[in-house]
Design a protein around this nucleic acid. Structure first.
Lengths: 234, 234
DNA sequence: CCAAAAGTGTTAGAGGTACACCCATGC
DNA sequence: GCATGGGTGTACCTCTAACACTTTTGG
């Protein structure tokens, strides 16, 4: 590690000097979105291709070093914007990874955040050589310990979804019951009974019934719903 | 913060020098134990009185700086042993706190751990001027943002207990159903129906019925139970 | 007309909650 | 004998899971 007698060379930036051993702090964004179609899972996760070593050309989660005056969350939001152009509508801190040698450069502590978005337009920028959505069931091999971070993230997402109607951040403004069901099935890797599923969702009070709308389908025009804040305080 | 031109003075320890801005990493232990008796909550939490600034003479959770070659968890175990003499039988990482100015000295990222123990003999040592058990409903004012950490810890404990029979780390080897109930009621701040509680606990398969034992009570000799690994894989 | 998707209702079982009576013990 | 705490059983309610038929639409 970087504990060393300091030798300043002309032209170098001044280093950061501390009395106690330190770690770098990074924030990573595990960004989920929903886009059905095709055989693969409609649950997507955003990866960037690293433009620099270590792990150059590997896929990784967007993220980076947290500035000294930022919270981890602020750093996550900023890095996501810088690397992909995404504004994060929902963030949730999930854990912390502090294994000593998880980064070959020096000790790095990472705080990962789940991010949910329905905006799938991303632009690779900054350190990122590329940015792309991958189906969660078809991920490439990932840099650092990001595979492990991904497992924690999806587990945390499943837990949160039990108590919070987080699907509202992933679905379009207007959606059908079967879209909602497809999303749940993708997240929990499980099939649900159509009728029981609809009954349970309607009973939460979070669905606004907008009447029949969707056309051009080889079937009925399904009811279109929107998210509504439930009467949970009455 | 500590970004400064380095001036080495004779006799000083060599400082730690880095290319990027850094944070210190600490691990804190929120240690719970169970000891009924008295009007206060039988759920206790271990605090140490800080022997040095900042927050000298304030109560705080045992913990301290994580060494460069340690995981946060290893640091937590070591600090707990050093400051209180406790061996931690159960640890669970709960979150991470990274607000920039939570420590007045420099930026400090803290990883808190829930620790469960039935060993209530503690010795203040190392940096700790004193070490004492407090009822969770009667905590003194705490150093840093430890109050906030405590709230997260007890919430996490409640969640974990739903899925894991963690009470085994808090109760004595042999215990009665009403002890177990008292523990649950202390953790969830809620009263349970005695009969329904017993039925539910027995149905988990984690209780070994050891027959009638406990004497010197103004009532029946209650059944004494021990923890048993349930047949959950059959 | 037919395939595809969506709307609708009933039933059985599990688990949770509420509640009342009797029993064994120490004082 | 009596207060205290422990053991036991039952009824109701709610939630869940399993399941079948009909309707609307596009092609």
């Amino acid at each position: 590690m970087a504990h060393a007698v300091f030798k300043y060379r002309k032209g170098e930036a001044y280093p950061w000097v501390y009395k106690y051993p330190q770690t770098a702090l990074t924030a990573d964004c595990i960004v989920f979105s929903f886009s059905p179609g095709g055989k693969e899972s409609p649950l997507k996760v955003l990866l960037i291709k690293r433009g620099a070593d270590p792990y150059k050309d590997y896929w990784a989660f967007p993220g980076g070093f947290v500035n000294p005056n930022e919270t981890a969350e602020q750093g996550a939001v900023r890095e996501l914007q810088e690397e992909t152009g995404l504004q994060a509508p929902y963030l949730e801190q999930i854990d912390v990874f502090s294994t000593p040698n998880r980064d070959p450069r020096q000790r790095v502590v990472t705080v990962p955040f789940i991010v949910l978005t329905r905006d799938v337009n991303v632009v690779a920028a900054d350190d990122a050589a590329d940015a792309k959505w991958f189906s969660v069931d078809d991920l490439p091999s990932l840099a650092f310990d990001h595979k492990e971070i991904f497992e924690k993230a999806i587990t945390a997402l499943r837990k949160s979804l039990v108590f919070n109607p987080l699907w509202r951040f992933l679905l379009p403004e207007e959606f059908t019951m079967s879209q909602l069901q497809t999303l749940y099935e993708a997240i929990y890797c499980k099939k649900y009974d159509r009728r029981n599923f609809a009954r349970k969702m309607l009973s939460t009070g979070f669905l606004n019934d907008g009447g029949l709308n969707r056309t051009n389908l080889p079937s009925r025009h399904p009811t279109v719903y929107t998210f509504k804040i439930g009467n949970h305080n009455l």
